[in-house]
Design a protein around this nucleic acid. Structure first.
Lengths: 176, 176
DNA sequence: GTTTGCATGTAAACGGTTACATGATTGG
DNA sequence: CCAATCATGTAACCGTTTACATGCAAAC
């Protein structure tokens, strides 16, 4: 899913500036499965405007830099639905944490232990975040996505809790 | 986690050719959280050899193309442990499926339904795959990683099963 | 007085994928 | 006969990140 399509999707929910889109990426209900930087959002918005999929009105503000508010056009809505109707690219999960855990026996036990504890803390933080955004989420889609995130993170958390002892520091482990 | 480090890690488990490393990526216990193509593996192996982190012996085969078998060196092992000891980059999860679900109310109900059913089938296939590789997995690290995968996919699957009815085709939904 | 927030944008660098090039063998 | 498996490698392309450039206002 490229940044273009994601911007289009966000704009179906209401007008926004590039800056606001970025904030949705890092703070919203999307943050656990989407990400993008200014360096990709601004050029995407410019191209989308050239192609007539979004329109742009400039708002001159006092005491604040000018802002460009983008709206999706009818053509944009059509292009968006088309993009969602085509074949879905596969989900991608890249996990440096799991990669490191694969080599747990080659690492100092206290390092492995720290890795797991850190991961537990991050997962708990993620669950709290999902609760926060879940409280104000509107449509059924958003509720579904947040629920899906909660289900996976809860599964992961339970597993981490249940298996951390395995790698506890200096656990002399009965046999090899 | 770049392809270089991942190749190094795989080679700590035993010698391998570029071709074999690729197969591990797509068939092994790694496949749910790692991926790489030939176009990145071969150049990585070449560079690693130049830097002395791996060594390479050529095996001339009859009836088969020559193969280059790579082994990790002592310097390579050190570099690998160093890479795992530094700060871990965050996990990244990119989900076109969840992105599409966010806009479920804008999509034809039968399309949403198909999306969920497809996802259920994929998740079940993934769980079967993890069972297969889990049966032959050796170290504690591999067992942990497979268990973690199972825990998250089982959480996801239970959620999908429990909530698919919400989006069932033509469910006239009591109120908005 | 320094950091944070608002606000937009560009250019270079990076890591990676896709497609291409080559070629023999084995199984359906 | 065609597809798949084994096996290596390059080059063009792509989307993205990172760093840079600019600047004012409010909060700490």
């Amino acid at each position: 899913m490229d940044v273009r399509t994601i911007c289009l999707g966000i704009l179906t929910r209401g007008d926004a500036t590039g800056y606001e889109i970025k904030k949705l990426f890092e703070e919203g209900a999307y943050s656990h499965f989407l990400e993008a930087s200014f360096g990709s959002i601004y050029p995407a918005l410019t191209r989308l405007t050239e192609e007539g999929l979004v329109s742009c009105r400039a708002e001159t503000q006092e005491k604040r830099p000018d802002r460009k508010v983008y709206s999706i056009t009818q053509a944009g809505r059509r292009a968006f639905i088309d993009a969602l109707s085509g074949p879905m690219p596969e989900d991608k999960y890249r996990s440096p944490f799991l990669f490191a855990m694969l080599f747990a026996h080659q690492l100092p036990p206290e390092h492995v232990h720290a890795l797991i504890d850190q991961r537990i803390a991050e997962t708990e933080a993620m669950l709290r975040h999902l609760d926060d955004v879940g409280a104000t989420a509107d449509g059924p889609g958003e509720q579904f996505v947040i629920g899906y995130g909660r289900a996976t993170f809860e599964g992961a958390l339970a597993y981490l809790m249940a298996h951390r002892a395995r790698f506890e520091t200096k656990e002399p482990a009965a046999a090899e």
